[in-house]
């Protein structure tokens, strides 16, 4: 537990001292969102129809863009090797990294949601559900993404590869989350979706650190 807390604290310090790396995915998110009205057309009816999909796809891409932050600097400066040598559990280490990453990259997206929802003309109910769904799902995204980040950490240009490896795995989350927002816009009950997203979160929380830890181990073994 103390290892977990100290890792989280260290990561937060590192991220706060390099704010541009943290801000870039958020800027990316905003830019992608603002491209869609230019491509689809500015009419509110059309935009509000496709809004959940737009916001979700942009959020997935932004999360993947920020995945590169997760282990790369630790791998390059050798601190990952030190963690392995110290005998601490890589699973706990992964959990700590993902938690810190989520605080830095996932939560700001949730906070941005109301603004973004207004820009794409989502109804007010829809905006709150959108924020709630992102709050439930962004940890899952970070957890699953950490597997890809850990697998490609030793590769010089792993960024694009991570998207190819991980995006197909995001399909269920994308489907459930957009369906939840659309259900709320059309006035139906969303409790079922919340249970589903929570179930996926628990599954990812239980299994993803195992896979990511094993991947980190092998990239250090090399």
């Amino acid at each position: 537990m103390s290892f977990f807390l100290s890792s989280v604290a260290r990561d937060l310090r590192v991220h706060i001292r390099k704010p541009s790396e943290v801000l870039n995915p958020l800027v990316f998110f905003a830019v992608v969102i603002s491209l869609f009205p230019l491509g689809i057309g500015p009419s509110p009816e059309q935009l509000s129809l496709v809004a959940p999909g737009i916001v979700w796809v942009a959020a997935l891409l932004a999360t993947l863009m920020s995945m590169d932050l997760l282990f790369r600097s630790d791998y390059e400066d050798g601190s990952l090797e030190q963690v392995v040598l110290s005998g601490q559990s890589l699973v706990v280490f992964t959990l700590a990294k993902v938690f810190a990453h989520w605080l830095i990259a996932g939560l700001p997206l949730v906070v941005l949601m109301p603004v973004v929802g207004l820009v794409v003309f989502l109804e007010v109910d829809g905006i709150w559900t959108l924020a709630l769904s992102l709050l439930l799902v962004s940890p899952t995204l970070s957890l699953v993404g950490s597997i890809g980040a850990a697998l490609t950490v030793g590769l010089p240009r792993g960024g694009l590869l991570v998207t190819i490896l991980i995006l197909p795995l995001y399909v269920p989350v994308l489907i459930l989350a957009t369906a939840m927002v659309q259900a709320s816009v059309s006035g139906s009950d969303v409790t079922g979706y919340i249970y589903w997203l929570l179930a996926l979160l628990l599954l990812a929380l239980a299994l993803a650190p195992l896979a990511a830890g094993a991947s980190l181990q092998l990239s250090v073994d090399e």
Binding site: L151, P168, I175, L203, A214, L218, S219
Partner: peptide
């Protein structure tokens, strides 16, 4: 290393396949 990485990824995909299948059905 490539073998072990691919093995991990295949197993992760295996866990995901039923979830993908059911969510897409839904």
């Amino acid at each position: 290393q490539a073998g072990r990485a691919c093995a991990i990824l295949s197993v992760v995909g295996l866990v995901n396949l039923p979830i993908i299948k059911y969510s897409v059905d839904w």
